Simulated scan of single mutants.
Amino acid sequence: MKITAVIPARFASTRFPGKALADIMGKPMVQHVYERTARASLISDVVVATDDKRIADAVRAFGGRVEMTSPDHETGTDRLAEVAGHLSSDIVVNVQGDEPLIEPGMIDEAVMPLTLDPGIVMGTLKSRIRTLHDFLSPNVVKVVTDAEGFALYFSRSPLPNFRDKWNDLKDEAFASGKLLCYKHVGLYVYRREFLLKYAQMPPTFLEMAEKLEQLRVLESGYRIKVVETLHESVGVDVPNDLEKVLERLNSSK
């Protein structure tokens, strides 16, 4: 089974232009993502998908594989699907280009269910919410799953609503697991054929309301396998996030 990881990377980020090329200990951020992704045991190949020559040149400079894509894509999924259209892979993994500390084990955790069950068309990850801030923040996407680990819903709102436990909404209740809830980790795994179909589906009501692409899958009647991970990554949305990344890298030396 051939499994290809695709890293969508664009230069024109609204909150942090050029972040894919941000220097982290002498390497552009996209190189950190590429090298960590390549260490996942289930990944056969890694490719960066970009519409920017500067990013493409940087990837080639460190020996990485890159595919130039259309500048007109509105989402990373569309960019992913363009690359997947001429891959021979069975499974395609979308690894976010702003996750320089992505753990290779996280990628394997998300991929594994699709290698074991041919009926699963899409997978992703979740991790425990441990603070009240994350539970309430609309920037932290929450997910709830059924007894078999398939997503019931994703939301920017607090989820679930602990109706009778408002007095327990404190950091220690989340840290201890008294209030058990999960945030979505934005790493996606697709069967290639499903990814190509998904990219052609029209946007749906809940997707547009929440601004969450994965809701298109649920609204269209498909299931998403969600695996809990104990790994924690640090995404880079704004320049100040680089400090957190450097702290983590320095502490691991």
Rank of each mutant, 00 (worst) to 15 (best):
L152C: 11
Y153H: 14
F154L: 13
F154M: 06
S155E: 02
S155H: 03
R156D: 04
S157W: 08
S157P: 00
P158Q: 03
L159M: 14
L159I: 01
P160M: 01
N161D: 13
F162Y: 05
F162K: 00
R163F: 09
R163Y: 08
D164R: 05
D164C: 00
K165W: 03
K165E: 10
K165C: 03
K165V: 00
K165P: 00
W166V: 11
N167K: 12
L169D: 07
L169Y: 02
K170E: 14
E172C: 01
A173E: 01
A175P: 00
A175M: 12
A175T: 07
A175E: 15
K178H: 09
L179T: 06
L179M: 08
L180R: 14
C181E: 12
K183F: 04
K183I: 04
H184E: 10
H184C: 05
H184L: 09
H184D: 02
V185E: 15
V185A: 00
G186S: 14
L187W: 04
V189W: 03
V189E: 07
Y190L: 10
R191L: 07
R191F: 11
R192W: 02
R192Y: 06
R192P: 14
F194Y: 15
L195N: 05
L195P: 07
L195E: 06
L196I: 07
L196A: 09
M201A: 09
P202R: 05
P203G: 13
P203K: 10
F205K: 14
F205T: 12
L206T: 15
E207A: 08
E207V: 06
E210K: 06
L212T: 04
Q214V: 15
Q214C: 09
R216V: 04
V217I: 15
L218K: 02
E219A: 02
E219K: 08
Y222S: 02
Y222K: 11
R223N: 09
I224N: 01
I224T: 04
I224S: 00
K225T: 01
K225G: 06
V226N: 01
V227F: 02
V227E: 07
E228D: 14
T229K: 01
L230F: 08
E232G: 05
E232M: 03
E232R: 15
V234S: 08
G235A: 11
V236T: 03
V238H: 11
V238F: 10
P239L: 07
N240C: 03
D241M: 04
D241K: 03
D241L: 07
D241W: 01
K244L: 14
K244N: 14
K244M: 12
L246F: 02
L246E: 12
R248E: 14
L249Q: 06
N250A: 13
N250W: 11
N250R: 15
N250M: 12
S251G: 09
K253T: 13
K253P: 02
